[in-house]
Amino acid sequence: MTAPTSPLALILLAAGRSSRMQGRHKLLEEIGGEPMVRRSARTALDSGLGPLVVVTGFQAEQIAAALHGLPLTLTHAPDFADGLSASLRAGLRACPPDCAGAMILLADMPDVSVADLRALAEGWRQAPPPAVAVTARDGRRGNPVLWDHAYFPELSAVEGDTGGREVLQRHAAHVWKVERPGNAIFTDIDTPEDLAALRARLAADRP
C-alpha cells in the first residue's frame, strides 16, 4: 500500500533569530555566492516535489529580499519568537488544502541536496500510510522530515521550541527511516565557526 499521490508541499523554516551568530543573520550570509536561505530554497525548488512555502519571522523583509524572484510562497509567523512550533503552524496553514503531506526543511542546513529530498519523498510514498518519513544515517534521525497530512492537526497544536518531536514520539510505529549517506542531514549552521567550516569545505571541493 502506498501513500496518496496528491501533491506534496515543502515548508522551509526561515524565521529564527540567529541568536548564536554574534549579531549576524546566518540565513543572509553568503554560501557559494548567494544567501544561505536562497541556497536552501533553490534546493527545495529544484527537487520538483511540490510547491514551496517559506516561513519568515526575524528580519522578514531582508529574508524576502534574499528570495526575490523565486517561485515560492512567503508566509510570516508573527509569533516566531515563541519557538519552532510557531513557524511550523504558519507553514502548515499556508500549505495547499489538498496536499498529501508536507516536508519540513530547515533553512540553516544548506548541505542538504536535491537527492536527499527526492529519496525522502520516495521512501515516504513506499511506506504504509499514514507515515512520517525521516532522513537517517545508521539509524540516527536527521532532517528534513516528511509528514502525512493526517498529522497536521497534531503538529499545529504543538507549543514551544520542540517542533514535531513530541508528535514523532507518539507515532513511533509509523516512522519510516530513509537512509542517506554523509553528514548533510545533521549539519546545521548555528555559529560563526560553523559557517567558516562550511565555506572552507566548499572551497576545498571546488576544482
Rank of each mutant, 00 (worst) to 15 (best):
V54Y: 06
A14I: 08
I63N: 13
F186P: 11
P96Y: 02
M103T: 12
D188Q: 12
W124T: 09
K26C: 14
A65E: 12
G16A: 13
L106R: 14
A9T: 02
Q62T: 12
L70T: 00
A102G: 10
R89F: 06
V145N: 03
G50C: 04
G16N: 15
D82G: 13
V134W: 00
D82I: 08
A102K: 05
T73W: 09
A127P: 10
A107E: 12
K26L: 13
P71H: 09
L72N: 05
S18A: 10
L67A: 12
A107G: 15
D148R: 05
A204I: 03
L8G: 00
D148F: 00
A203T: 01
G182D: 02
R89C: 02
A133L: 04
G57K: 04
H149M: 10
P192L: 10
L195D: 10
Q126C: 09
L8E: 01
R17Q: 14
H76F: 12
D82S: 15
K26F: 15
A102F: 10
L27F: 09
G123H: 02
A197P: 02
G23E: 04
T73Y: 06
A121T: 01
A14P: 15
D111V: 10
R170M: 09
I185T: 13
A102R: 05
P129I: 07
T162H: 07
D98V: 08
N143I: 14
L49S: 04
V114A: 10
L155A: 05
A90F: 14
H171N: 08
A3E: 06
A102T: 05
A15H: 15
A94N: 12
G182R: 01
L198K: 03
D111P: 07
R137D: 01
R38M: 08
V54H: 07
C99Q: 13
A65L: 11
I31C: 09
P35Y: 12
R206A: 13
G142F: 03
P129F: 08
G163S: 03
T73I: 03
P7I: 00
T73K: 14
L27G: 06
T162W: 04
G142S: 07
F80E: 07
L72C: 12
R199N: 00
V158R: 12
L74C: 09
L198A: 09
L155E: 02
A119T: 08
S113K: 06
P153N: 02
A203S: 11
A9V: 03
D82A: 15
R180C: 07
Q126E: 09
R206T: 11
V54L: 03
A172W: 05
P35I: 03
V53D: 11
D188T: 11
Q22M: 07
R170F: 07
D116C: 13
D82N: 14
G163M: 03
A131M: 03
R180E: 11
L155P: 00
V114D: 08
L13V: 07
N183V: 14
A15M: 14
I31Y: 01
I185K: 00
P35F: 10
Q22R: 14
G33D: 08
V134T: 11
P71F: 04
E159Q: 14
E61Q: 15
A119C: 02
A121Q: 03
G16V: 08
M21Q: 05
A203R: 06
P4D: 08
E34K: 13
D161H: 09
G123Q: 02
G142N: 05
A121Y: 00
H76Y: 11
F58V: 07
A204P: 02
L88G: 06
C95Q: 11
H149G: 02
L52K: 05
L198W: 01
P144Y: 12
